[in-house]
Lab assay of single mutants.
Amino acid sequence: EEKRQVKQVAKEKLLEQSPNSKVQVRRVQKQGNTIRVELELRTNGKKENYTVEVERQGNTWTVKRITRT
C-alpha cells in the first residue's frame, strides 16, 4: 500500500515538471523511511531516467530529491 502511494507521489511530481510526458515506474526500493523510486520519463520519444527519493513525514509523503540518472 505505501509503495503504491509513493509511486503515485513520484509520478505526479515528475509530471508537474513536464506535463505532456509519459512516466513509467521501473523500480521501488525501501531504505528506512525513505523510498527510492526509479522512473522512466518519455517526452516525444526521448527517454530520460530519474530517481525520486520520497520520505515519510507524519502521514504524508514528501519528495526529498529528484536525480536524473
Rank of each mutant, 00 (worst) to 15 (best):
E1I: 06
E1W: 06
E1M: 06
E1H: 08
E2A: 07
E2D: 12
E2Y: 06
E2S: 05
K3D: 15
K3R: 14
K3P: 03
K3T: 15
K3I: 15
K3V: 15
R4C: 07
R4S: 12
R4L: 09
Q5D: 10
Q5A: 13
Q5F: 11
Q5W: 09
V6Q: 03
V6R: 00
V6N: 01
V6E: 02
V6P: 05
V6W: 11
V6F: 05
K7S: 15
K7R: 09
K7D: 06
K7F: 15
K7I: 15
K7G: 15
Q8P: 02
Q8M: 08
V9A: 07
V9M: 10
V9F: 12
V9C: 04
A10K: 00
A10N: 01
A10Q: 01
K11S: 12
K11F: 05
K11N: 02
K11C: 09
E12Y: 04
E12T: 07
E12P: 00
E12K: 08
E12Q: 13
E12C: 04
E12I: 06
E12N: 12
K13T: 10
K13E: 02
K13N: 03
K13W: 06
K13C: 07
K13Q: 03
K13S: 09
L14G: 02
L14N: 01
L14Q: 01
L15H: 03
L15D: 02
L15E: 04
L15F: 02
L15S: 03
E16W: 02
E16N: 04
E16G: 04
E16H: 04
E16M: 06
E16L: 03
E16D: 03
E16F: 03
Q17V: 11
Q17P: 01
Q17I: 15
Q17W: 04
Q17H: 09
S18W: 14
S18Q: 11
S18F: 15
S18Y: 15
S18E: 07
S18I: 10
S18N: 15
P19K: 04
P19S: 02
P19L: 02
P19T: 02
P19R: 03
P19E: 03
P19W: 01
N20W: 02
N20G: 15
N20A: 07
N20M: 06
N20D: 10
N20K: 05
N20V: 02
N20P: 02
S21Y: 02
S21G: 13
S21L: 02
K22E: 15
K22D: 13
K22R: 08
K22L: 12
K22W: 08
V23L: 04
V23F: 02
V23A: 10
V23D: 00
V23Q: 01
V23P: 03
V23N: 00
Q24H: 13
Q24D: 11
Q24C: 08
Q24W: 14
Q24I: 13
Q24M: 14
Q24S: 14
V25C: 05
V25M: 04
V25K: 00
V25A: 04
V25R: 01
V25N: 02
V25F: 10
R26F: 10
R26Q: 11
R26K: 13
R26L: 11
R27Q: 07
R27E: 06
R27T: 08
R27Y: 10
V28R: 00
V28T: 08
V28E: 01
Q29P: 00
Q29M: 14
Q29S: 13
Q29L: 15
Q29D: 14
K30Y: 15
K30E: 14
K30F: 15
K30M: 15
Q31F: 13
Q31I: 12
Q31P: 01
Q31N: 13
Q31E: 14
Q31L: 14
Q31T: 14
G32L: 05
G32C: 04
G32R: 04
G32Y: 05
G32V: 04
N33T: 13
N33F: 10
N33M: 10
T34D: 05
T34P: 03
T34L: 10
T34Y: 12
T34N: 08
T34C: 07
T34H: 09
T34K: 06
I35T: 14
I35Q: 05
I35Y: 15
I35A: 13
I35L: 07
R36N: 13
R36G: 04
R36M: 15
R36S: 13
R36D: 04
R36Y: 15
R36L: 15
V37H: 00
V37I: 05
E38C: 07
E38F: 15
E38G: 07
E38V: 11
L39E: 00
L39N: 00
L39R: 00
E40F: 09
E40W: 09
E40I: 12
E40H: 10
E40N: 06
L41P: 00
R42Y: 13
T43V: 05
T43F: 08
T43M: 06
T43G: 07
N44F: 07
N44C: 06
N44Y: 09
N44A: 13
G45L: 08
G45N: 08
G45W: 06
K46G: 07
K46H: 11
K46Q: 12
K46W: 11
K46T: 11
K46R: 09
K47R: 12
K47H: 09
K47S: 11
K47G: 04
K47T: 11
E48Y: 04
E48D: 06
E48L: 04
N49T: 10
N49D: 11
N49Q: 10
N49I: 12
N49R: 14
N49A: 08
N49H: 11
Y50S: 01
Y50R: 01
Y50K: 01
Y50L: 03
T51H: 06
T51C: 07
T51E: 15
V52A: 08
V52R: 00
V52Y: 01
V52E: 00
E53H: 08
E53F: 09
E53Q: 09
E53G: 02
E53R: 03
V54T: 03
V54G: 01
V54Y: 02
V54A: 03
V54P: 00
E55P: 00
E55V: 12
E55M: 11
E55W: 08
E55H: 09
E55G: 07
E55R: 05
R56N: 07
R56V: 04
Q57T: 12
Q57G: 05
Q57V: 10
Q57H: 10
Q57M: 11
Q57A: 11
G58F: 11
G58M: 08
N59C: 04
N59A: 10
N59P: 12
N59D: 13
N59S: 13
T60Q: 12
T60N: 14
T60L: 08
T60W: 09
W61S: 02
W61A: 01
W61P: 02
W61Q: 02
W61N: 01
T62R: 07
T62L: 12
T62Y: 13
T62E: 13
V63K: 00
V63P: 03
V63L: 03
R65T: 14
R65D: 14
R65Q: 12
R65V: 12
R65F: 03
R65A: 15
R65L: 11
I66P: 02
I66R: 00
I66W: 03
I66K: 01
I66T: 04
I66L: 05
I66M: 08
I66F: 04
I66C: 04
T67N: 08
T67Q: 10
T67H: 09
T67M: 10
R68L: 15
R68N: 15
R68I: 11
R68A: 09
R68T: 06
R68P: 11
T69D: 11
T69K: 07
T69R: 10
T69G: 12
T69C: 06
